[in-house]
Nucleic acid binder design. Structure first.
Lengths: 169, 169
DNA sequence: CTCCGTTGGTTGAAATGTCAAATAGAGGGT
DNA sequence: ACCCTCTATTTGACATTTCAACCAACGGAG
């Protein structure tokens, strides 16, 4: 094999930092959200996506793309949420194969209750730790990587960036 | 509840970007590594840590801290790797309770075989997509967040940054 | 209209990760 | 030595994710 270009000190620092950041942050945010609202990050994301639409319903496959998860994973996820009454499935009128996930009242209520705490958590652990320039830099940097990543053979997921935003109220 | 400070447009962009980046990148890197070498990211990390020491052995609890995973998770992980012959467990001489994970020959060989491809993958998908300044910025930004994150009630994991580096050969 | 190769979605089993015990040795009194 | 508590690690049950079928409906070609 051709001897690869190993990482420089700066690159190493960035890579290790990235890895650490991701693990700790994911853990912390998930934990905060869980104990404050009983929702997982995955639950939250589905609720946000649904609440963001006018009719509060999205086709399963579209939802999977938005959330960047496999169809299978989403299907299981929605089943669990359905069992808890947070969402409901309906048959798709236009396409006999399809089904749409619909946000229920309790689901919306759960999101409204969870949002402030979650935003606060994201702020405390991530955003407020950075300067305005760093926040800006993170945004641009992420977009650069995503552009290329979504271009080539997008894996189980698809295009589009991600979200996780509060209720639009 | 006190109306929280919602995210500004810039913050939102950074946060969404971060989320997307993490999902896609993790997926892509894991997939590359898996098909090139048959190792998961978790496998790779354990191998790297062990290979980084002079004696190629680390106490389980220390390894868990380095890798920032819970002891339970590490225990399961090591068991799986042990079954594949990548590592081996030994009783700890100094402490009757403890056990140490030891890198085996095949384990080392697997790492040596996987490293070039993995570094290349990290480069192609992440580092080479960024300017030198962005790489530098990512490193600093991650450290800023980690400093604070490891300070407060560190969750299942502990202190320290993470790695994932090639064999030191 | 029928055939057939996609597409949308689900399902079940296997792999992985989490959480709460359970086990066992260390260590400090008494 | 004996007891109590704390630490290191494993274990098993359970939740979540992945992977590979599977099923049914779409939609174009013949």
């Amino acid at each position: 094999m051709p001897e690869p270009r190993w990482l420089t000190a700066e690159e190493m620092r960035a890579w290790r930092g990235y890895l650490g950041l991701v693990r700790l942050l994911e853990d912390r945010l998930g934990r905060d959200l869980q104990e404050q609202s009983g929702l997982s990050m995955a639950d939250y994301e589905v609720l946000v996506r649904l609440s963001d639409t006018a009719t509060r319903r999205i086709r399963m496959s579209e939802l999977a793309q938005l959330a960047m998860v496999s169809k299978s994973r989403l299907s299981h996820q929605v089943s669990r949420m359905e069992a808890r009454g947070l969402v409901r499935r309906e048959a798709c009128p236009e396409d006999g194969r399809g089904s749409v996930a619909v946000l229920t009242g309790p689901g919306y209520a759960a999101l409204v209750a969870a949002a402030p705490g979650h935003v606060d958590s994201v702020r405390r652990h991530l955003l407020d730790q950075l300067t305005a320039e760093q926040v800006c830099s993170l945004g641009r940097l992420a977009e650069a990587v995503l552009d290329q990543l979504t271009g080539e053979g997008a894996a189980p997921c698809a295009a589009e960036a991600d979200a996780l935003q509060p209720v639009d109220e």
